[in-house]
Design a binder for these strands. Sequence first.
DNA 1: TGTGAGTCAATACG
DNA 2: CGTATTGACTCACA
Length: 379
Amino acid sequence: SSRGHSQPDLSQLQPCPRAPSLDPPYGEPSGGESQPGTPLLGPITGLSIQETIAMSPELDTYVLTKKVKEVLTDNNLGQRLFGESILGLTQGSVSDLLARPKPWQKLSLKGREPFVRMQFWLQDPQKVEKLMDMKRLEKKAYLKRRHSSLSDSRSVDGGLAGPDFLQSASPQHQRRTQLYQKKVRVVLGPEEKEALKRAYQEKPYPSPKTIEELASQLNLKTSTVINWFHNYRSRIRRELFIEEIQAAGSAAAAKAGEGDSCDGTESDSTMEGHHGRHRGAPENQDMEVRVEAGVSDGSPAQRNCTTSGSVGPVSSSNSNLFSLPEAGLSLSALSSHTSTPARNPRDNTLRRKKAANLDNIIHRLEKAAGKEDPSEWEF
DNA sequence: TGTGAGTCAATACG
DNA sequence: CGTATTGACTCACA
């Protein structure tokens, strides 16, 4: 069951450059920024991306990304090319997305867009050819530009507009090269990260005052500390989601052990054991909250691999697109996790402690979101 | 105003 | 080169 059905012809999906978000890089408010330019997905459907995504059936982001990675590597296609021409995202974003996809239910409408695009792309019989063509064109344009850098530059790479679409890639950033400073990247040292993580453990949501203290103690800008907390919380949260996926996958696989294809290739994403990259610094950054894939009892268990044939919609029997009862979605999502992973009968010490701490955080968030309990955000 | 979500883009890494 | 990591930024929302 479940397989190509009523879906809105998702045959051809254009690359469509990022929709609205147009952000001038640091400084320069200038704005084109036209607004509701809701791009269309296809010439015929006439549906906006948002609409199409809204009616998209549930997708298994894990299986989906796995397939995409497979196709890309099998054909020597890079993330940059794929991201810029198919998803309208940069290489770094694609890497992140493919390596750590959040489960569909936890994604916002916007967050689902890349996955819907991946889905469409996989359905396109000519996906590989198109991308290869793009690659060729890019190389050609590159060589040309390089060879005769005499003439002006820009000029949209001459005939890049070959096959069909593409080249839209990133709208904004172009060659504002010399106009802006390079933007120096702040790189926190191991000790600083250590300190911040410690502070996080104690207070995931530090008060402005605490932030100031940390900033001065570590000799960092206040904004850097703030950003660090934002990012850390966000990334920790994502790790938990991923654990859920893997746990669920393992469970599912264990439950039904059919001779499913599952070409073993790639057991990937399993958390890395740590290694000390970081320039010869005192790395003992084990305090990562990562809990490893070995979920609870430790049985390795097979990897997801669920449906083999179709990467397609995992549509749960009744693809109830919306119906999702209530908006409790986000909250219930969080709470659901609260009881899932950490539920470990045996005391797993460290791991458990960390999970508990995180659960606490989430707990408080739910509380704060649901009711007005300004009691104290202290711990 | 602060937060989560999504990204960008510099750069570390291989 | 291609990929992974991550500080900073935009935006919607309450």
